[in-house]
């Protein structure tokens, strides 16, 4: 049974349409004009218990909106949604007790007090008794490598320590479903790695399902076997991370060092020539022709060195988001 199942999920907002300048402001004040903006359109997917799924997409793609619908914070405009056996927007107690949401930009810990005070408030809200709360805090603090940070005012903690304390607060009630929205935002490389290691460990130990959005590809590659790529509100890809690179780049790059310079025409039927400078040749060869092309190349030409490489996934997705379009990219 899927723990998350979304069918045709859509959300649109009415947003103010305001021209700049004083005249625009006056016009907007007198007569509000707004237009409908589709943030999420017809998104369908399902997630099995225990999966760690990465949610990818550029800013404004609809990731956070989707996450907020899954947690019941906002009501979908259309589509059906079931999370942990409940309709999220009804926000029933049993549903809220089985999920958690961690947001890199927002914090729930009380700013002026040590995290322990916030944790005790959360324990009371979730009906966890003192003994059990202490046990869980000790266990999670050990996993997160938090010690005396728990008795220091939150405002005195570093961003990394604060994020770890936020995670502790979000996991105290042992949710089976974790929604993480940019959990490593703004953290330095070490702190990011620690948060990542913790999440992987937590998923292994508890079998909790994790749905994660991040701008850092490293988070996704380290944690997620499966990714959902969303762009302009639509689900563009749902599947294994490795296969995504094939979809985004259905070709591979082959760098060849020739014994002597050759004319470009000699390589025209091997693939697309990316560059040819003297005896340095770079080819883009479709994946399915790779073996045949490379063996023919070795047989027909004097090759000193040859290297086949896959463009890094970060680069592919980065390029994709910069281009801002999702037409099949290719050579």
């Amino acid at each position: 049974m899927a723990i998350v199942s979304a069918r045709g999920l859509s959300k649109s907002y009415w947003v103010a349409d305001k021209q700049p300048g004083f005249a625009g402001t006056m016009r907007h004040f007198l007569r509000r004009r707004s237009k409908e903006l589709a943030a999420v359109r017809q998104v369908s997917f399902s997630i099995e218990p225990g999966e760690v799924v990465g949610f990818l997409g550029p800013n404004g793609a609809g990731k956070t909106t989707t996450l907020k619908m899954l947690t019941g914070l906002i009501h979908p405009t259309a589509g059906s949604l079931q999370v942990a056996g409940h309709l999220p927007s009804r926000r029933q107690r049993a549903f809220l007790e089985s999920i958690t949401l961690v947001m890199g930009q927002k914090q729930q810990l009380i700013w002026d007090l040590p995290p322990l005070d916030s944790l005790r408030v959360n324990a009371a809200i979730y009906g966890i008794d003192d003994y059990e709360a202490r046990r869980r805090i000790a266990e999670l603090a050990e996993m997160l490598e938090l010690e005396d940070e728990l008795t220091r005012p939150v405002r005195k903690l570093s961003l990394g320590q604060r994020m770890k304390a936020e995670l502790l607060a979000a996991l105290l009630h042992r949710p089976q479903l974790l929604f993480l929205d940019e959990p490593t935002l703004g953290l330095d490389v070490n702190a990011q790695a620690r948060v990542r290691a913790f999440l992987a460990d937590y998923n292994r130990r508890t079998g909790a399902t994790v749905l994660l959005t991040s701008h850092y590809m490293a988070d996704i590659t380290a944690l997620c076997d499966r990714v959902l790529l969303i762009h302009e509100g639509r689900l563009f890809y749902d599947g294994r991370l490795e296969l995504l690179s094939e979809r985004l780049a259905p070709w591979r790059q082959v760098r060849v060092e020739l014994a002597s310079p050759q004319p470009a025409a000699a390589f025209a039927n091997f693939g697309e020539i990316e560059s040819l400078e003297g005896s340095e040749l770079r080819l883009l060869i479709p994946r399915q022709q790779l073996t045949a092309s490379v063996s023919r190349l070795l047989a027909e030409h004097q090759v000193v060195d040859l290297e086949v490489s896959d463009p890094p996934i970060e680069e592919l997705i980065g390029r994709l988001f910069r281009q801002g379009s999702l037409e099949e990219p290719g050579p």
């Binding site: 907020k68 947690t71 019941g72 914070l73 926000r91 107690r93 809220l96 007790e97 999920i99 958690t100 949401l101 947001m103 927002k106 729930q108 959360n122 809200i125 979730y126």
Partner: peptide, 13 residues
Amino acid sequence: QQGSLDFVLLKPI
């Protein structure tokens, strides 16, 4: 304004 109502709405209370 700051969206921290999220945390309130997500609590089973």
